[in-house]
Design a protein around this nucleic acid. Structure first.
Lengths: 236, 236
DNA sequence: TTGTGCTATTTGTCCGATCATATCGGCTTT
DNA sequence: AAAGCCGATATGATCGGACAAATAGCACAA
């Protein structure tokens, strides 16, 4: 057991790294009860607040479990959570160095269908804007966007010009901040989508679905269909 | 502008909530430079450290952007990041109240194929254990697991009994902690998988792929095929 | 045996002060 | 005009001290 008496640990980062090291190296196996903050602070030669921050962050990251009086222990089953960044399509494409292009395929304001009313919590007869867009990277289709915007919540959308830039970019400007639900799923390409994405009908499509509320009111619902072979990846 | 002079804000949570409120209500629009920590601390009547923590957390959550000397501003384009919890299948199923059942379909130790060697960084001729398992919820197939375990990194796996409980549960006990890459994608069900998951061949399958390293050495690679209609959802 | 209340312990949070670090902008030098 | 220097300033981190809140585990009562 190397308990590093002399290592000059001085920042919460060092403390964090050292605790992590002891866990990965197996000195502190899953389920182990760690020494208390006071004890660790002494052995590291730092203030308790510093140890606290290190442990708090490790807890946020899913590695530790803490309870008052009960102490801190290594999570028996590392409930690790993965973080996925959800950038705007434009940023996502341009980050790869490719040329981003956007096309508005259709646009039409109509009564919101029942499923959308239920999803966004709209009144009967509420109107919504329905948009279909295609985002492409270096000329190749990248993402097909099927979006609904509630005209109850955002009447200004009816006047907005979505020919030049995507509804996404308009929305982030129009809506300050919001509550979001995202799902990832696999769907079969219907003929229309297959056509736009240069795929065969019925082919599996990686699909993201996102609903946005602002102050409890449904704003927009979108389904994003990605081109063949798309992956959502993260590493930790 | 409601600047809340008298509101008795006392914890970093209150400060955080108040800043968030001003952002969502549009008082502080995206791109706005907000007051410095000292000023805010005074106006809230708390210590600077408290304001600092509130702002730091909001920054971690992707709402603010901070730079020394330049100050803090509301992220012009809210870099949304979603967190997905990646639980063990058993926990995932039992959380819904369903009865979890596990079956080992096949098991076989052989030379690692080239793609796996490349992925895990194994030497030529290295052996690996190949497992196929089925996880079900209340009798209905839930997830098909196609896993490879490097016998170079984990020779003990060859002796392990995967008949009773899944390799996942064995692995979390055997490997202290690790680096992981996860991908989500959509694949077409091949006949074998379709059979196990009660789907039609060619049907879209939501698929997760996970590779795990420990101290730089490839440990295991797994592909998880989910039953029809599976979604990975998060809300924030 | 079983339930109930107390207490010591451990984490959670806050404070106010201090030093560290990055960097914006203006000033100086070339 | 361009390049480089430097001080002012805002965030970043740490410290030591203090009090708050939760609760595990014990003592005690029914």
């Amino acid at each position: 057991m190397n308990d590093d008496p002399s290592a000059d640990i001085s920042s919460y980062r060092d403390v964090k790294a050292d605790i992590l090291r002891r866990i990965t190296e197996g000195h502190w196996a899953p389920g182990t009860l760690l020494p208390g903050e006071v004890e660790l602070a002494e052995s590291f030669g730092v203030a308790r607040a510093t140890v606290n921050r290190a442990m708090r962050e490790l807890t946020d990251e899913g590695l530790l479990e803490r309870r008052r009086k009960a102490g801190t222990r290594v999570r028996p089953m590392p409930l690790r959570s993965a973080r996925f960044e959800i950038p705007l399509v434009r940023a996502e494409i341009e980050a790869t160095g490719a040329v981003y292009r956007y096309a508005l395929l259709s646009r039409d304001a109509r009564q919101a269908p029942d499923w959308l009313r239920a999803r966004l919590g709209l009144a009967k007869g509420a109107r919504a804007l329905h948009l279909a867009c295609l985002h492409s990277a270096d000329g190749a289709p990248y993402q097909f966007e099927d979006r609904w915007i509630s005209l109850t919540a955002l009447p200004a959308a009816e006047e907005a010009d979505f020919a030049a830039s995507g509804p996404n970019e308009w929305l982030v400007k129009a809506v300050p901040y919001s509550e979001v639900e995202i799902s990832f799923l696999a769907t079969a390409a219907d003929p229309r989508i297959a056509g736009y994405l240069s795929m065969d009908p019925g082919e599996p499509v990686f699909t993201a679905e996102r609903t946005t509320w602002w102050e409890g009111r449904g704003i927009t619902h979108v389904r994003l269909y990605f081109a063949r072979g798309h992956r959502m990846t993260t590493r930790y």
